[in-house]
Every structure is written in C-alpha cells, then in structure tokens.
C-alpha cells in the first residue's frame, strides 16, 4: 500500500448502449465519498463505441472519465475487461473502486480483486468513510439479512466494493458540469481471448416486469390459500399494477418464483407498493423498503411490515382487499368521466 493511491472510481457498466442505472447511483454515492476525502471521482468506461457515453457520466458527478474503446470489449467478457481495468488501475492507482452488484459487475470485481491482491466487499447496502484513516466502511447484509456487517480493508489498496442496485441515490444530472476525459489503449487481440459471445438473448428469462413497475401489489402467506391470492391479481388488474409475492407465497405455489420480491428475488422501487398478508421479514423488506409509498394490510398490529409501511391497515385482507378493489374501480371510473368531460 502506498501513499500515491488517490481518487475514487466507479466502474461504469454499459447496458444496451447506455450507462446502467446502478453506475449512476454509484456516482452519486461516490461523489459524497470523494468530497469527504477531498479527491476526484472518476467513471471508468470500457466497451466498443462508447466514448460518447462520458457525456452521461460527468453530469452525474464524475470529475474524470477513463475510457478504453476497443472492439474486443464489445460484449462483456471477463478476460478483456480484466485486462483493461487491470491496466488502468495499475497506471492511475485509485484509492477506492466501486462496482454495481450485477452479474457483470460482480464478475469483473472478483477477478480484479484477485489480480491486484486486494480486498473486495460484496453486495453492500451502506457506504461510509473513516476520514482520518481513509478507510471505506462498506456494510452488507449477512446470514440471510439477519444482521449487517461492516467490512474494512485496512492494509491493501485499492479498497473495493460491489454495491446493490437501487440502494444508493443518483444525483440530479447537471449538464453544466465539466470533466476531464482520458483515453487509453488495450493491447489485446481477439485471437488471444478464450471465450466468445455467440449470441445475446434479451429478456426471455423475465416475463414479469417488477423492476420497471410503478405500482406493485405483493401478496404473502397471510392470504391463506391460492383462491384468496386471486384477490391480489384482481387488485393489480384494477389499478394496472404488477404482482409480487413473498418467498412463502412462492413456496406455497400460489405464484411463480419470477414474481418474488426480496433478498433472493427482485429488488424493487416502485412509486406505490402494496404489501398484503406480508409479515415483513428482513429478507423481504430489503427488496422493497426503498419504494416511495408503502401500504400494508395485515391482521396482526405488531407485524414488522408496519415498521416500513407509510400507511398501515390492520385487518383481514380477505375483507379489506375487495373493499379496496371496489373503491379503486369507482375512483378510476370517476376520473375517466372527468377526463372525458
């Protein structure tokens, strides 16, 4: 470890020709750390024909953008990305590197940590900094989310962490922000690379759009049986929402696994999240607690879901949900009348 390690980097992941949301969120989190440590914040951009994307990174908080634009970086593969990131990190010796905890972000981060023989904290949900010792305090849920652990990397640099999508906040982009762009080259030929991407197939794995939904109605084990769970679908249909389920609802086979919200399912941040017959176990709430407005219905007034809910209704979901469906139906009909008038 040497004194010369300086600066905070964010690995800027490119998805479908645009910067991934999580990378913009990390620029927001990184900006705060960089200001506290009084160092520049950089985005690192690897890919083919991606140079123009630096224009997306600077408004979101980057002071610098490091770029390698090369055909071998067209689709993500560990070998060329490792070569590129490894080269940049050795040349410019950053103090901290953050990656999104996505399949590709985790893959590249693990390979680089081994290459640079440094520590890597996985799947963080909180980032802080000990300014005096210049230590990144990266905290992550452990043992199935039952506890949080703060992981430190005291003697090795760079300090690295992968961070869950949707837990940090991106800054409002400032188009007037200025930054510096630095380009490097990668000396790697396609023939040297042992993996080939034959084809990329978009989306078939996910028939359910939870991530992009504005409104989600999530049903839990408290619905009682499969038939009553249909009320969840009816409510969702009424208001145009996506349907979610807890793990227990999935295990009861009332709904398929691709609808599961939580630690081992999707992390979602809709505008409105209905949690109905959901107890609010930590493994569930880690996946939904950043929703803008949370409405819970549970017959147990002490259910932990009420600790995260914006509005709580204590009562039997089998009685309340039909009343709700009726009320929303009427309301939407009224609105339609008004908007057509």
């Amino acid at each position: 470890m040497s004194e010369e390690h300086r600066g905070i980097w964010v690995f800027a992941e490119v998805i479908d020709g645009a910067i991934a949301g999580v990378s913009l969120e990390l620029l927001g989190a990184g900006r705060e750390l960089a200001d506290k440590l009084d160092v520049p914040l950089a985005g690192v951009l690897l890919g083919e024909n991606i140079t123009h994307l630096s224009e997306q990174l600077i408004p979101y908080g980057a002071d610098e953008v490091y770029i390698i634009d090369d055909p071998v970086l067209k689709d993500y593969r560990t070998e060329p990305f490792l070569a590129g990131m490894g080269k940049l990190a050795r040349m410019y010796v950053p103090e901290i590197i953050l990656y999104g905890a996505t399949p590709n972000g985790k893959d590249i981060a693990s390979a680089i940590a081994t290459d640079l023989k440094t520590g890597l904290t996985a799947d963080c949900t909180m980032l802080g900094v000990d300014i005096e010792n210049r230590l990144l305090e990266a905290s992550r849920p452990a043992f199935g989310g039952n506890i949080m652990a703060t992981i430190l990397c005291k003697k090795h640099r760079p300090q690295m962490a992968t961070v869950r999508p949707k837990v940090m906040k991106a800054l409002q982009p400032d188009p007037a922000r200025k930054g510096m762009v630095l380009k490097e080259k990668l000396e790697m030929k396609e023939a040297e690379i042992r993996t080939k991407v034959l084809e990329i197939i978009k989306g078939p794995g996910k028939s359910v759009d939870l991530e992009g939904a504005d409104v989600i109605v999530c049903g839990g084990k408290g619905m009682g049986d499969e038939q009553a769970f249909q009320l969840i679908h009816q409510l969702a249909d009424t208001i145009g929402a996506s349907v979610g389920g807890t793990r227990d609802a999935v295990e009861a086979r009332w709904i398929s696994h691709d609808h599961q919200v939580g630690q081992t399912g999707e992390t979602v941040t809709p505008k409105i999240y209905f949690a109905i017959g959901v107890s609010g176990a930590i493994q569930h709430t880690v996946g939904m607690k950043n929703s803008e407005l949370i409405i819970a219905i549970n017959k147990d007034p002490d259910a932990p879901i009420f600790d995260v809910a914006t509005y709580g209704i204590v009562g039997d979901a089998r009685e309340t949900v039909p009343v709700m469906i009726k009320a929303f139906e009427e309301l939407l009909r009224e609105n339609e009348v008004i908007s057509h008038a």
Binding site: V197, I200, K202
Partner: peptide, 9 residues
C-alpha cells in the same frame, strides 16, 4: 444476465 441470457463458447 440481468435482462436475458448470453450464449458463450
């Protein structure tokens, strides 16, 4: 992947 699959050799 996050939003699909890659076929890799």
């Amino acid at each position: 992947l996050q939003d699909g699959y890659a076929h890799i050799r």
